[in-house]
Nucleic acid binder design. Structure first.
Length: 885
RNA sequence: GCGGGUGUGGCGGAAUGGUAGACGCGAAGGUCUCAAACACCUUUUCCGCAAGGAGUGUCGGUUCGAGUCCGACCACCCGCACCA
């Protein structure tokens, strides 16, 4: 071979690894274990650059740890249930099963040429009955353990297709196929009781030392512990059974600023009123239009309906507040009823202005307050809001400022700033934050108004899906016995082979025979549950299954004890909340049901969230002005711009996530055939820090290829070179030691781009060195080892060319000789008043006093001082000197 | 709307509170070549002939010293419970 040729070299080394069984995970008590896992892919059929990046990162970690002497588990599987398979069935008449398994075969075939150090013997798909049967067994265990419940939940309902829609299938409040406005509808559903564990899941976040702070923060906010006051308003004019209205507030200190109460359209009182009042029914029906997502609800126009019912302010029987039904009040949070304080909450203020409700200030707006006094501010110092006199209320009587400054912008007291209460409680003036709220709760409790309670934002995990391509929920419905768990020996409850997607809805529901069964309790006729499980269930324990993928029970105790926890988990930040939270819950549930050791409650010791792979978008317009997108390979890019083959100018839109619809995709297979897998791997690791997005560019890929060719050429030349040792050998050895240290810390700190920059420096150093052939070969062998996690095939080739023993993948990771890392002198920059003016070179060991003398004697320093005597001299050893004049 | 993040040359990015721009791309000039490709060498934040000055999204603060810490803002990206 006379040049770098990945097309022959890569398959050669892949079969060498396979032949030697290098990547089979073997429990070895004599070694520390290391479990590295990348979030497993959905089998869409094609791998994309995001996969290449994700699995290359994991592979770098896995290969490095193996060379550092660990027993490594690095498995791969398929998150194979889900909507796209059903869509393919509807659109193309293919069975979801065939479509999925074909995709898996295709993707596996695309993944293997990338040379990942994966133990393929552990591969499984979540749609394998062997896997989902074990999942059903665990569901039954969790049901028995009280971790599962059934209750009502709201879903998106398409009134034309008569089917439940995923949030993704709701576009602008309309069903994606029918185009009909979506409604919210209640169904009885299965739930995991994750909210019972809210406090535990929240507190345990503190122990997740290996997780990014941002993910821990997101999880904390998602679980959302809040301290507040729950109390009941007495009602006036409410139907029987509703003489009290329970509300929950996190701002009890603003109770004296209340000017209305509002209930959710799903509140029992709203439902009661709806039955007898067509106007209420119409309003509530209107509120139920649109999707169920929190985003849809929170961004919808705020609307209310005055029920005519009044509630009495808890501090004054005579003070009555109107009760509205409001579309922004969520039934799932708190009690489904709130009170509104327009002066200090923007949403409440908008509502108050819309419905002509009073605005009662609780806090005095600080005179010097930031934005509020800007001329363009919505705060108008002269506007006057008339407020009726409410009479005498004793010591808590609200008072009003002579003029009101709150017109269209609510005053939300800033955190960490003291604010004066003008309508507050005795003893809690001049405070904000937790302390004021605790004091307000105490004051209310002392008066017999409610009690302090802790609530969580986290809701139970609804797992029922009205879909075919998921894990069947293993229960039956019996007219005599009710809901009955399926018997163990009947697991797995398999999906039928002959689903029909001819009409909308769940094929399991329509199937002529599948649901028909006998009751496990009474042997009478019964019907299977036709709902299947959320695919998040499948991905909430696959990491545990990888430790014993073919065990006859969900896990094998010995294998789980050896391999768990996952030492390093790697995936997209889009999973930062749901998938990770559900997995944390599931691990606890598996501990509770005996499927995992107690030490595995938190299954992921360390987490890394990687960024996306992006690409420019190339766009032209058709005759009607609609955008037309073009694949990167159709476009010629130059400095001047971009054009098609025929010369048509192309608009270049800045980089965005690769997506088929925008055609800004690069097929990894095309890159592999053009440049090789190592080149793709090197490029995705080299250009950006791994937690950030990386932009795929053709020039970057070519540059990566050039560099790998250069390394190959250096090795080729060195393999044939002859000659004596040279004086530069020692300098090269120092450069190698430096690189060993820097690349190792780079990889261990997930700074792959920096590790690669150091490898560029090392190859430059080798290329420019005048060292002798033996020293060059030694340097290149170590460089091959350092490069091997990123570009394993080229590394093997270089290693072999230069006489390395065995496989580089099985060689021990190099360690730098500390004596070669010590520098004997250092260049100190000299600042004068913080501006860099000069520099001096001093021996590393020089003391501060001598450095000061050398600095003051420096010609440039003298010139800048111009006779002045420095006030102060700051010497940071080995770093910098600052002269303050 | 709520929660989280990001912002540094023409571009991707580097920088324990201590020389801003490592490394790479691109660009310019050169060597080699009949020529090109490849390879190699040099230059490359901006303004300026230079001396020097300016500079890390904006405004303000802390500090001997701020890309880094604090406050306010702007822009963009991600998530929001049935996409995976």
């Amino acid at each position: 071979m006379s040049r770098y040729d990945p097309a022959t070299l890569e398959p050669k080394w892949q079969s060498a690894w396979e032949g030697a069984g290098v990547f089979a995970a073997r429990a070895d008590p004599s070694k520390p274990k290391y479990y590295v896992l990348e979030m497993f892919p959905y089998p869409s059929g094609r791998i994309h650059m995001g996969h290449v990046r994700n699995y290359t990162m994991g592979d770098v970690v896995a290969r490095t740890k193996a060379m550092q002497g660990h027993a490594v588990l690095h498995p791969m599987g398929w998150d194979a249930f889900g909507l796209p398979a059903e869509n393919a069935a509807v659109e193309r008449g293919i069975s979801p099963r065939d479509w999925t398994y074909r995709n898996i075969a295709d993707m596996r075939a695309q993944m293997k040429p990338l040379g990942f150090s994966i133990d393929w013997s552990r591969e499984f798909a979540t749609c394998d009955p062997e896997y989902y049967g074990q999942q059903q067994a665990m569901f039954l265990d969790m049901l028995k353990a009280g971790l599962v419940t059934r209750k009502s939940a709201v879903v998106n309902w398409d009134p034309v297709d008569m089917t439940v829609l995923a949030n993704e299938q709701v576009i602008d409040g309309k069903g994606w196929r029918s185009g009909a406005p979506v409604e919210r509808r209640e169904l009885t559903q299965w739930f995991f009781r994750i909210s019972d564990m809210a406090g535990e899941l929240l507190d345990a976040i503190d122990g997740l030392k290996g997780w990014p702070d941002k993910v821990r923060l997101m999880q904390q906010n998602w679980i959302g512990r809040s301290r507040g006051l729950q109390f009941a308003f007495g009602t006036v004019g409410a139907p029987d059974g509703f003489d009290r209205l329970e509300v929950y507030t996190t701002r009890p200190d603003t109770l004296l600023g209340a000017s209305f109460a509002a209930i959710s359209p799903d509140h029992p009182l709203a439902k009661q009123l709806e039955r007898h009042d067509p106007a209420v029914a119409a309003f509530v029906a209107e509120c139920r239009r649109g999707g169920t997502s929190e985003e849809a609800i929170e961004t919808a126009e705020k609307r209310g309906y005055d029920t005519g019912i009044r509630v009495r302010h808890p501090f004054d029987e005579a003070w009555e507040l109107p009760v509205y039904i409001a579309n922004f009040v969520l039934m799932d949070y708190g009690t489904g009823a709130i009170f509104g304080v327009p002066a200090h909450d923007q949403r409440d203020l908008d509502f108050a202005r819309k419905y002509g409700l009073p605005v009662i200030q609780v806090f005095r707006i600080p005179e010097a307050s930031h934005d509020h006094d800007r001329p363009d501010s919505d705060f108008a110092t002269s506007s006057w809001i008339e407020i009726e006199d409410r009479g005498q209320w004793g010591e808590d009587r609200p008072t009003y400022e002579l003029y009101q400054r709150i017109v269209n912008v609510a005053f939300v007291p800033p955190k960490n700033e003291e604010v004066e209460y003008i309508n507050g409680f005795a003893g809690i003036d001049f405070q904000t934050g937790e302390a004021a709220i605790d004091a307000a709760i105490e004051a209310c409790e002392a008066r017999g108004v409610g009690r302090g309670v802790t609530k969580f934002r986290l809701r139970d995990w609804g797992l029922s899906r009205q879909r075919f391509w998921g894990c069947p929920i293993p229960v039956v419905h019996c007219a005599a016995c009710g809901v009955v768990p399926e018997r163990r020996e009947n697991l797995p409850v398999r999906l039928p082979d002959d689903p029909s997607f001819e009409r909308p809805g769940n094929p399991l529901d329509h199937h002529p025979t599948w649901a028909t069964t006998t009751c496990p309790a009474c042997n009478g006729p019964a019907r299977r549950e036709t709902d299947t499980m959320d695919t998040f269930v499948d991905s909430s324990w696959y990491f545990a299954r990888f430790t014993a993928p073919h065990a006859a029970t969900p896990t094998d105790p010995a294998e789980a004890a050896y391999w768990m926890n996952v030492d390093q988990y790697i995936g997209g930040v889009e999973h930062a909340i749901l998938h990770l939270l559900y997995s944390r819950f599931f691990a606890r549930a598996m501990v509770a049901t005996g499927h995992l050791p107690a030490t595995a409650k938190e299954p992921f010791d360390a987490l890394f969230t990687q960024g996306m792979v992006t690409h420019e978008i190339y766009q032209t317009r058709d005759a009607a002005g609609r955008p037309v997108y073009h694949l990167p390979e159709e476009v010629t890019r130059s400095d001047a711009g971009a054009s098609l083959q025929d010369g048509t100018a192309v608009e270049v839109i800045p980089s965005a996530k690769m997506s088929k619809s925008k055609k800004n995709v690069v097929d990894p297979m095309a890159i592999i055939s053009q440049f090789g897998a190592d080149c793709a791997r090197w490029f995705v690791m080299s250009d950006s820090p791994p937690e950030r997005d990386v932009e795929w560019t053709a020039s970057g890929a070519e540059a990566a290829f050039k560099h790998l060719s250069r390394v190959w050429r250096l090795a080729d030349e060195a393999s044939r070179a002859e000659g004596p040792a040279m004086p530069d050998d020692a300098a090269l050895a120092r450069a190698v030691a430096r690189a060993v240290a820097d690349v190792t810390t780079g990889i261990e700190g997930f700074a792959f781009n920096k590790a690669i920059a150091k490898l560029y420096e090392l190859s430059n150093a080798i290329a420019r060195s005048d060292a002798g052939p033996d020293a060059r070969r030694a340097a290149l062998r170590i460089m091959a080892q350092l490069m091997s996690p990123m570009v394993p095939h080229l590394a093997e080739e270089v290693w072999a060319m230069l006489g390395g023993a065995g496989l580089v993948a099985q060689s021990p990771w190099p360690v730098a000789d500390p004596s070669l890392l010590v520098e004997d002198s250092v260049v100190l920059p000299i600042q004068i008043n913080g501006k860099r003016r000069a520099e001096i070179s001093v021996p590393m060991a020089m003391g501060a006093a001598e450095i000061e003398a050398r600095v003051l004697a420096d010609e440039t320093v003298q010139r800048f001082l111009d006779g002045q005597v420095p006030k102060k001299l700051i010497v940071v050893p080995g770093r910098i000197v600052n002269v303050v004049v």
